[in-house]
Amino acid sequence: MTTGAATRESYYERTGGHRYKPTAHAGGAWNTDEQHFSPLAGLVVHAIDGHLARRPEPLALARISYDILGRIALDECEITVETVRPGRTIELLEATVVIGGRPVVRARAWLLATLDSSAVADSPHDRLPAPEELGVWAMDDEWDGGYVSSIEVRRTPPTRRGRTAAWVSSPVALVAGEPSSALASYVALVDTANGIAVQQDPTAWMFPNLDLTIHLHRQPRGPWTGLDTTVTFGPSGQGLTSSVLHDADGPVGHAEQILTVRPVT
């Protein structure tokens, strides 16, 4: 794969002011004619970054929650962003992803003003081993799709089902010919969590997530997204993927994904 600035491949190509066409690299793990949600989540943050570029005073994204409303076809999408609750120090945005005239994702993002709280900064979570200390895991041996084939994963050997830690990176640009923020590129890899610590063989059981909620206590930096992940299956068709999020400097926040667990038929 070519990674030079002039020919770098991408997950999306902009086709209009708010419209984007996915490339084959955005192909899903459950169905290859659908989009994997991970790069689309990053694309939503990219659209939010564009919306916020007009603000005179920057705000930091502290939480973003995505609701997946239906099938996300590997087709052109339109993303609109509107301000729900304006404010100088606290603001709420809503982004909507539409494909074929139908909303497929709605996301809400809380933004906060930044101030110096370094004197009391602390987290009880231990740092992950550095990416170079872990072995490469060929995730595409277990999962299909263009997205999974596009990423590099370094994972701790699982000690039991549903529990592992991993680092994820990608040489693929988010949007062709456009710079993306460190946050958008970081978020574009978070949804990978549901596939790195599987509870059951995905050829026997399906467990797609219906949402993704990310809380951040610090703005992350790349190029690696760290996922300290636990996957729990309940007895009545629900599951939960929970991750402590890391970058090279340590923990940055948490991510949660609710799962619908059902046998493959």
Rank of each mutant, 00 (worst) to 15 (best):
M1N: 06
T2E: 13
T2L: 13
G4N: 12
A5L: 11
T7S: 06
S10R: 03
Y12C: 06
Y12I: 05
E13I: 05
G16A: 12
H18S: 15
Y20C: 08
Y20K: 06
K21A: 15
K21S: 15
P22E: 03
T23W: 03
A24M: 08
G27F: 04
T32G: 10
H36R: 10
S38A: 15
S38V: 08
A41H: 13
L52Q: 14
L52V: 14
A53W: 05
R54N: 04
R54I: 05
R55W: 01
P58N: 04
L59P: 00
L61F: 07
A62C: 10
I64G: 09
I68E: 10
L69C: 04
L69G: 03
G70I: 02
R71Q: 09
I72A: 13
L74Q: 09
E76G: 12
C77A: 12
C77N: 09
I79F: 09
I79P: 05
T80R: 14
T80E: 15
T80M: 13
E82F: 04
T83F: 09
R88N: 03
T89K: 14
L93S: 10
L93T: 07
E94P: 09
E94C: 10
A95C: 10
V97H: 13
G100F: 00
V104D: 09
A107H: 07
R108T: 02
W110Q: 10
A113D: 12
A113V: 11
T114E: 15
D116M: 06
S117A: 15
V120I: 12
D122R: 14
S123M: 10
S123A: 14
H125L: 14
D126S: 15
L128G: 08
L128D: 12
E132V: 09
G145W: 04
Y147K: 01
I151D: 08
E152R: 03
E152T: 01
P158S: 03
R160A: 15
R161P: 00
R163D: 02
A165F: 01
A166K: 00
S169V: 02
L174D: 08
L174N: 08
G177H: 03
E178C: 05
E178Q: 09
P179H: 08
P179R: 02
S181L: 11
A184C: 10
V187A: 06
V187F: 04
V190D: 04
T192M: 13
N194H: 13
G195F: 12
G195K: 12
Q200T: 01
Q200D: 00
P202L: 13
F207R: 07
F207G: 01
P208F: 09
P208S: 03
L212V: 00
I214N: 04
T225A: 07
D228N: 11
D228Y: 13
T230D: 02
T230E: 00
V231T: 02
G234Q: 04
G239C: 03
L240V: 11
V244I: 15
L245C: 12
L245K: 10
D247Q: 07
A248H: 08
G250T: 11
G250N: 11
V252D: 13
G253V: 12
H254L: 14
E256W: 07
V261R: 07
R262M: 12
P263Y: 05
V264F: 11
T265N: 10
